[in-house]
Design a protein around this nucleic acid. Structure first.
Lengths: 158, 158
DNA sequence: ACAAATTGAATTGTGCGCAATTAATATGGT
DNA sequence: ACCATATTAATTGCGCACAATTCAATTTGT
């Protein structure tokens, strides 16, 4: 009665474990982020913009997209909502009118303090040792790197 | 120059590693599932229904939702699309008119053969040892279990 | 200098996820 | 039998994700 080796069994799928765990984590964030008035993807955007402030970097839609692996189809409307909420400003760069630069407002920067407890709370919710979570995170990063590099089995010859 | 310990740094977030890895894996599935005419969530539904056939179980919208952690708001339109494609039938149970039973058509059952290579291909794409993937899967399941059980830090006293 | 190619963002359209509401059916207590 | 309550799907509305297209601004090649 050990684990079946059926390659199509749901319980054997890494992809489903990933899919389900991701939604469970996102769900845990939802209640916490509700207090900030942010959705989960908006929170990730704010994390990147807070980092950029600290490093005195100017983020653009494309650099944000590279960091989060999201395209303008996702980011443009999301950023417009954050702008409408008064958390950031979008403006065209003078040097290149194609690029849209993102600048946090004072309110957007101040929210960083309110967010400090969010990852801490999630760590507590997980109930797992920090070492386990770090290991899991690094394994996921490794998987991501593998999938983002062109894999041998991907290309088909002309 | 080792890893920062800023709790808000994006690279320190397990949640982002999970989010990014999940989308990368889903993206890899997309091209393969395109050949079957399935989206990734539709593929997961088919996995469950193929299992149910083998075990001679009758799946309903709610039992499917329990397995995949999805509600009727997601499943109802998805199932209607699969029905429109001729892969399954939805019908009210005679014993309880509230429940909708799901039955694969012969075409839906036959697709299982076409899908056999999908997880195999993904395994190859990952380029990682099977043992690593199994360990990662089990860690994700553990995290999921933790988050689904009511955690001590969740409830607020009246 | 000018045509062609490239780049950056926005737009459009489809399909999830999920909260909240609604409607129909079933169940349990009296 | 009657009624309040539970349960099961469906519906509605919003916000992602992502493919495909469009458009303007810029860069490249000659």
């Amino acid at each position: 009665m050990a684990g079946s080796i059926d390659p199509l069994a749901l319980d054997n799928q890494l992809c489903f474990a990933l899919y389900a765990a991701n939604r469970a984590v996102t769900g845990r964030y939802r209640a916490l982020l509700d207090e900030l008035g942010l959705t989960y993807p908006q929170y990730l955007v704010m994390l990147v913009l807070w980092e950029a402030v600290q490093q005195e970097q100017v983020m653009t839609v494309s650099s944000l997209g590279q960091r989060l692996r999201l395209d303008s189809g996702t980011l443009t409307p999301l950023l417009k909502r954050l702008e409408a909420r008064g958390l950031l400003q979008r403006r065209r760069a003078a040097s290149d009118e194609r690029v849209v630069q993102l600048a946090l407002t004072p309110e957007g920067q101040a929210m960083r303090q309110q967010a400090q407890h969010v990852p801490v709370q999630l760590f507590c919710d997980s109930g797992l040792p920090l070492g386990d979570l770090v290991q899991l995170r690094e394994q996921l990063k490794g998987l991501l790197r593998r999938l983002e590099s062109d894999c041998p089995s991907a290309e088909s010859p002309a």
